[in-house]
Design a protein around this nucleic acid. Structure first.
Length: 964
RNA sequence: GGGGGAUUAGCUCAGCUGGCUAGAGCGCUUCCAUGGCAUGGAAGAGGUCAUCGGUUCGAAUCCGAUAUUCUCCA
């Protein structure tokens, strides 16, 4: 049976048992603050368990794309190392929402596995919940009795809470579960050790294949359990493992789910056969697994990025690239070539990938390129660090032996190919191949070597090649610690994104080790730092009034009289906030790119500001800073109408823009993201090149034309999804739609979209749209930002006002740009001129001062009051005089723009005599001008407040100089 | 959302705890040498040290904010 048949049999089986087969929900979640990705089959039914929604069907089955990158049984870093963990996997599941319970769930599971899939009964084990004292829960006797009708009692094992009590999270629906395990070992092995001892023991061939969860409790934040009114069944069977069991393989990766991908990788990347090299095999598995996760996440609308879910995707892709880079020697983007193969393989089950093949491939390709660049930077940085160590030790070595290098003109030097700043050379030598230095050096002293080329890496092999005819063998006496310290490794990791195991690998290649304990310590510190403020506590919902799921009435009105259904406390960054749920509300919750409404609640005479409105699955949650004192009373809820109207204008404009882009650029334009608030609209869409100015102008013109046509909004609610699609409505990938949708139409021939947002009644009220920027977000994705209505007006007014101001400042020239350019050039010239003039002036002052110099006791003394244009020129004067007299002792009491300054400068010889110390002198002299200062032994400055003290400075200096 | 780094000449980067008048390589300009070169030599141009503010006698260097960008964590 191939994997396709296995999947179909599952769905057919449950269809025959009265289940509705539903499509997989997107991998990426939008309205769930507790989860980044769909990590199990039940996620899309969460609201059914929580009681926030009434289930549409009582019996449902599907295969669900899931992504797990962290958790108790799976860590991204483990995937590929073993043969049974995955990032993305399919979970087959059947559900009962308040319908059948343990009896049917158990019977059908057994029937499917043994009758349909014909798995050997003697290899199957089942586990049941064995009770838990802390929760005061008994053994699940009911399940045991039911299982006994199918399997012998000694194959029914008791499990602990960790394995056999399933919980969604810290709180929420939960219940005991029953797992089915299979023993896939050989007969000999089974004889040696019975399978029941290996169940739930992380044995790669004694694995859980199906988990039947019986949801019957709700766990409160306090930890207590309360029974649920409706009992549910939630089952999950790992598709890849099931295939392994049915196809008689010992690894998930050996099934036809992965093998085609892996053979392709092995062949094209490294021309080797999978299975012949343990390390390479790991890399191949990692790549085959990760491309699935990455490709489907992108197809579901999640671009790799540096935050949130996007960052997880980026990390997964990078891990795959890194493995290919290190073990399969793949230095060019490769992963993107797997996308077509994968898309074809899963075309029937998950058509979303195949439909966006080109787009996903491009995104992956671009992301690979950027990571390879980062790797390159990291390698460069690594080499620099390494060369620093080498250089330091080489200098020490040469110094100890008094070996001196000379350039051909006789000047002493140190060969700069040892300096770690030769990027060009290092690029040629991107790893450790030999490279040439085009410079001649002679080593003089007792050894004379003319050095033409050198490879600093070879020295580690204790050889040092110089010219062809002279060989300098690097002595083994040169030894130093061959360890990369933890800080360096951490900086590589944290700042350059350089994976630690790659650092270790590279270190090993040159005979170094990495101080891992120090590295880990740095890592821990960083984690603590960034975790410190992210803490958040959420309390239990407290019910005020019973009521149906909250109703959104904001499409039709901006205000309502409501009552509070429930509330809870949320602690975030030491700030206490409250969340309120109303029975009906005009507040639009953030969704579809449109931000949540703000506004106010009026309860009696009390007013409470609503700072944000968010969705939690289907719940509309109002965020407020304090609770009303009267929770039961009627609440008048009113949104901030001005803000909402601007958002509406921007949202409708987004639809017009979307349609215009498809007209101007082509049908490949798909929405990839959008943000709509009261200030701006931002629209991301798939398109493979930057838009030209003409294209932008065309799009703008078309949108504005549609605005002027003043098209009436046609809003239809509760349209069956199939009908909506037949109307040509644009549906988005990665968006989960119900059976009934809302359709927003501005002219059926122009723009028809599925949308839950709020819109203007006539396009005319948008007023005007102005694109203010067009940029790139990722490969194949462009971003347009635009303003409308009052925002557009303000934008124009501001731009125009600025231009007018600039123009008038320039005395209204014909061509502002040229005029400004000329002005800048002129300014630059004048600056240069001023600089030279200052230099000339300084030169004159210098000459004057030099003329007044007095030779006494073998030193040249200059002790004068001067007036100079700037501190800079004073410095120049001082240095010029130092260059002129090596026996100089100079004190200048200067007036710089009305500020007193004392400068002391000594000549080279005087400095060497150490009789004078400029720094000490200036400190003493500065007292006369009520100031302070310092500097170096030969040059020091001081500033002060008392201009009148300059004369006394000269007097004091006279005394200081003659005293020596 | 939070943490860390980076921003210095056209390019790639040095510049350690503030003070030896902002440096290197490549590139560019001019000149000299060579039959030729990824040649050798000499001279030279090119910098608001991202922006704004602060501390200081003195800031590329320290502090704060902003912008751009890389990166790590949740």
């Amino acid at each position: 049976m191939d994997s396709r048949q296995i999947r179909n049999k599952f769905l057919e089986f449950f269809e025959s048992k009265g289940h509705k087969i539903v499509p997989s929900a997107p991998l990426v979640l939008k309205n769930d603050p507790t989860l980044l990705f769909t990590n199990s089959g039940m996620v899309q039914f969460k609201d059914n368990f929580l009681g926030n929604a009434t289930p549409k069907y009582k019996r449902v089955a599907d295969t669900q794309k899931c992504l797990r990158v962290s958790g108790k049984h799976n860590d991204l870093e483990d995937v590929g190392l073993d043969t049974y963990h995955h990032t993305m996997f399919e979970m087959l599941g059947n559900w009962s929402f308040g319908d059948y319970f343990k009896k049917d769930a158990i019977a059908w599971a057994w029937e499917l596995l043994t009758d349909v899939y014909k798995l050997p009964k003697e290899r199957l084990y089942v586990t049941v919940f064995g009770g838990d004292k802390k929760d005061n829960l008994p053994v699940d006797e009911e399940a045991i009795q039911l299982w006994k009708q199918h399997v012998h009692a000694d194959r029914i094992l008791h499990g602990v809470k960790k394995d056999n009590f399933w919980e969604m999270g810290e709180s929420g629906p939960c219940g005991p579960c029953s797992e089915i395990h299979i023993d896939l070992r050989t007969d000999e092995e089974i004889k040696k050790k019975p399978g029941k001892e290996l169940v739930n023991n992380d044995h790669p061939q004694v694995v859980e294949i199906w988990n039947l969860v019986f949801i019957q409790f709700n766990r409160l934040a306090s930890g207590a359990l309360e029974p649920l009114p409706d009992k549910h069944v939630d089952t999950g069977m790992g598709f890849e493992r099931l295939c392994m069991a049915i196809q008689g393989k010992t690894s998930n990766y050996d099934t036809d789910v992965f093998r085609p991908l892996m053979d392709f990788i092995a062949l094209h990347a490294d021309h080797y056969a999978y299975g012949s090299d343990t390390k390479k095999d790991i890399a191949v598995r990692v790549m085959a697994d990760h491309i699935r996760a990455v490709a489907f996440a992108i197809a579901d609308g999640q671009l790799p990025s540096n935050t949130g879910a996007g960052y997880v995707i980026r990390r997964i892709l990078r891990r795959a690239v890194r493995y290919g880079f290190s073990y399969l020697n793949i230095k060019e983007p490769f992963m993107h070539r797997l996308v077509p193969l994968l898309a074809l393989q899963l075309k029937e089950v998950f058509p979303e990938l195949h439909q966006q093949l080109e787009y996903v491939g491009k995104v992956v390709h671009e992301e690979e390129k950027s990571f390879l660049r980062t790797l390159d930077d990291g390698i460069f940085s690594f080499n620099q660090n390494f060369l620093r160590v080498v250089r330091k030790n080489l200098i020490r070595y040469f110094n100890e032996r008094k070996i001196v290098f000379q350039q051909s003109n006789g000047q002493e030097t140190f060969p700069d190919f040892f300096l770690p700043d030769h990027r060009v050379e290092l690029e040629l030598n991107s790893r450790f191949d030999e490279f040439e230095i085009r410079k001649n050096f002679k080593v003089v002293d007792d050894v004379k070597i003319k050095c033409l080329s050198v490879n600093p890496f070879l020295f580690l092999k204790e050889e040092f090649f110089a010219d062809e005819d002279v060989k300098f063998v690097f002595p083994s006496q040169l030894q130093f610690e061959k360890e990369i310290d933890g800080h360096t490794a951490f900086v590589l990791y944290d700042t350059h994104g350089f994976p630690i195991d790659l650092t270790q690998l590279m270190a090993r290649e040159i005979g170094f080790t990495v101080d891992m304990s120090s590295f880990n310590q740095h890592l821990e510190e960083q984690k603590l730092r960034s975790k410190a403020d992210a803490a958040k506590e959420t309390g239990d919902w407290i019910t005020v009034a019973e009521g149906e799921k909250p109703e959104f009435i904001g499409y039709d009105s901006f205000t309502s009289t409501s009552k509070i259904l429930r509330y809870r406390k949320v602690k975030q960054k030491n700030k206490e906030l409250f969340q309120l749920v109303l029975d009906k509300t005009p507040f639009y919750a953030e969704s579809g790119g449109q931000v949540g409404d703000t506004g106010r609640l009026q309860i009696g005479s009390e007013q409470i500001d609503v700072i944000d409105t968010k969705k939690e699955n289907d719940l509309i949650v109002h965020w407020v800073e304090k609770l009303p004192t009267n929770l039961e009373g009627p609440v008048t809820a009113t949104i901030d109408i001005a803000k909402r109207k601007l958002s509406m204008s921007n949202h409708s404009a987004t639809h017009l823009l979307h349609a215009a882009l498809r007209h101007v650029l082509g049908k490949h334009v798909e929405q990839k993201g959008s943000l709509v608030n009261d200030k701006i609209l931002r629209f991301d869409f798939s398109h493979f090149a930057a838009m030209t100015a003409e294209e932008i102008a065309k799009v703008e013109a078309l949108v504005n034309e549609k605005i002027r046509e003043n098209i009436q909004l046609d809003e239809q609610r509760n349209v069956p999804i199939e009908k909506a699609k037949s109307l040509g409505a644009m549906a988005l990938f990665g968006e989960k739609y119900g059976d009934f949708v809302r359709v927003i139409t501005f002219d059926p021939k122009y723009s028809v979209e599925l949308c839950g947002g709020t819109h203007v009644p006539f396009t005319g009220s948008i007023g005007m749209l102005k694109v203010i920027s067009e940029s790139s977000v990722a490969a194949g994705v462009r971003r347009i930002e635009a303003v409308t209505a009052a925002g557009a007006q303000e934008y124009f007014n501001q731009s125009l006002a600025l231009l007018l101001e600039v123009k008038s400042l320039l005395k209204n020239p014909k061509d502002v740009a040229t005029s400004l350019q000329n002005l800048l050039e002129e300014k630059h010239l004048l600056e240069k001129k001023l600089e030279t003039m200052n230099a000339e002036r300084a030169h004159q002052i210098k000459d004057q001062l030099a003329g007044k110099a007095q030779k006494t006791n073998g030193i040249t003394v200059i002790n004068q009051q001067v007036t100079v244009p700037s501190a800079e020129s004073l410095k120049n004067i001082a240095y010029a005089l130092r260059n002129q007299f090596d026996d100089l002792v100079m004190v200048l009491a200067a007036n710089i723009d009305g500020k007193p300054n004392v400068t002391v400068m000594l000549g080279e010889k005087v400095e060497a005599m150490k009789k004078f110390h400029a720094g000490n002198m200036v400190k003493e002299l500065a007292k006369e001008i009520d100031g302070g200062g310092g500097g170096q032994p030969f040059y020091a400055t001081a500033g002060g407040k008392n201009l009148g003290g300059l004369e006394r400075v000269i007097e004091k200096a006279k005394g200081m100089i003659s005293a020596n």
